[in-house]
């Protein structure tokens, strides 16, 4: 299937979805803020602990912060950043995704060992291997001319 047919298929699917949802009413809007997690007394940031699996407002289990959530969160973020924004300002995203930051996330928050931030410890040595194995993962944060200034001393 070529790309034009694929996107035509997707648009037809969207249209079919519109017809189906004509009887389903309008969507749910998440509130602007979520109650502070710390005060809730939970041990894990697992939305289903309070919201369950009934999915009346949204599919909460999509947003469970599993140990590998940092690595795959774009699949949910790119669909509805308003859900993320209930707890995280854009500055939180800017720990990694920014036009230019000098301190890597682990150095910026060194004592917050509970956060699974990228590039902990000596990443200068390790990035040579990770970069050869999968350069696409580097590109997401270091792909533009400003964000790649840390790469320039060695990579030009």
């Amino acid at each position: 299937m070529n790309a034009k047919k694929f996107f035509l298929f997707v648009l037809l699917g969207l249209f079919a979805g519109v017809l189906i949802s004509c009887v389903a009413g309008n969507g749910y809007r998440p509130p602007k803020t979520h109650p502070p997690i710390y005060e809730l007394g939970e041990r894990r940031v697992y939305c289903v602990r309070c919201h369950g699996h009934e999915n009346k407002e949204m599919v909460y289990e999509r947003y469970n912060h599993t140990p590998f959530f940092t690595d795959n969160h774009r699949l949910v973020t790119y669909q509805d950043e308003a859900v993320c924004a209930m707890c995280h300002d854009q500055s939180f995203c800017n720990s990694c995704h920014a036009t230019r930051v000098e301190l890597k996330p682990s150095l910026r928050n060194q004592t917050e060992t509970f956060r699974r931030t990228q590039h902990r410890g000596d990443y200068l040595s390790r990035h040579q291997i990770d970069g050869r194995i999968d350069p696409t993962s580097c590109f997401r944060c270091h792909g533009n001319p400003k964000a790649s200034q840390t790469c320039r001393p060695c990579h030009g």
């Binding site: 590109f139 001319p145 790649s148 990579h155």
Partner: peptide, 20 residues
């Protein structure tokens, strides 16, 4: 990922990735 289509060989991309 197809490198020729994923990476960008123009000025909008960082130099270390252009050759990919």
């Amino acid at each position: 990922y197809r490198y020729d289509d994923f990476f960008v060989d123009q000025g909008s991309s960082a130099f270390p990735f252009r050759f990919l």
